[in-house]
């Protein structure tokens, strides 16, 4: 089955849906028109740039350029994960803990998939490496951000209970254990829910893409299953690393709770 290519008129036609929405918003005075149109314009520009960059990367198939691009993706994901936390660690830790956890988890899982399951030739072929990393990173970012957010907000809220345990001589690992467990629980909830619902409620985006481009549904299902396992693994590693590192930073070697290492509340 050949791929049905889209021309720019097709895109313009689809964009009229958005214009209709914006028109309705103005008519009903919902105040959404401006934000919607700006977001749509951003999306077009960002995707356009992404397309251009990927085209260059795929033509050159350079390991260094691919690695550089992958690193940039991780750095952007780190910024996004930090922005999603209400109370973050102060200083470089606020950015560093989440970013380092994502870098480690996404790199391990992507390399594992490239070298053992997908095995493109060469193994670093950006046509495989970059989309795989993108999907793993996107979900790992959500997990890391949720985990750190829950860790810091719960530790602040449960300060009394945590310190009461420390005062009685419990070690920091024991005193923070319920908080860390709650943070990991929250971090993994989306991926667990999405695995449970996949195939029932929605056809996942990547599988849709493969089917639209003519791939046999059974093959598309295999790819989607692989991706879900990779995503779940990456999210688990990333969230665990981030939450343990965050919990270590929120305490010190003398088993004190160090909420003074959180930046002031936003807003």
């Amino acid at each position: 089955m050949p791929l049905i290519a889209l021309d720019y008129l097709d895109l313009a036609l689809a964009a009229t849906l958005l214009l209709v929405n914006a028109g309705l918003s103005i008519w009903l005075q919902l105040g959404l028109a401006r934000d919607t149109l700006i977001a749509a314009a951003r999306m077009v520009v960002q995707l356009g740039l992404m397309g251009l960059v990927l085209k260059v990367l795929f033509t050159l198939v350079s390991p260094w350029l691919t690695a550089l691009f992958a690193l940039l993706m991780v750095l952007f994901a780190g910024r996004e994960a930090m922005a999603r936390q209400e109370r973050r660690l102060s200083g470089w830790w606020g950015y560093g803990v989440g970013t380092a956890a994502m870098l480690a988890a996404a790199a391990v899982v992507t390399l594992f998939a490239l070298t053992t399951q997908v095995q493109p030739e060469p193994w670093y072929d950006p046509r495989y490496a970059i989309p795989l990393l993108g999907m793993i990173l996107g979900n790992t970012m959500t997990g890391v951000a949720l985990g750190l957010h829950t860790l810091t907000t719960t530790a602040s809220r449960e300060k009394g209970g945590i310190e009461a345990q420390l005062m009685l001589g419990r070690p920091r690992g024991q005193a923070l254990r319920p908080v860390a467990a709650a943070a990991l629980h929250t971090a993994l909830m989306p991926i667990v829910n999405s695995m449970a619902a996949t195939g029932l409620v929605a056809i996942p985006g990547m599988m849709t893409g493969q089917i639209l481009s003519g791939v046999d549904p059974v093959e598309a299902v295999k790819y989607q299953t692989l991706i879900m396992f990779l995503i779940a693994g990456g999210t688990g590693f990333g969230a665990l690393t981030a939450v343990l590192a965050g919990a270590a930073r929120l305490t010190d070697a003398r088993h004190r709770l160090r909420l003074d290492r959180l930046a002031a509340k936003k807003g």
Partner: peptide, 20 residues
């Protein structure tokens, strides 16, 4: 000595107690 051992012997009981 490790901080937990210190606090088991020198124990602070604050005005507002914490519970976990």
């Amino acid at each position: 000595m490790p901080a937990p051992r210190w606090r088991r012997q020198v124990t602070y009981v604050p005005a507002e107690s914490g519970w976990w």
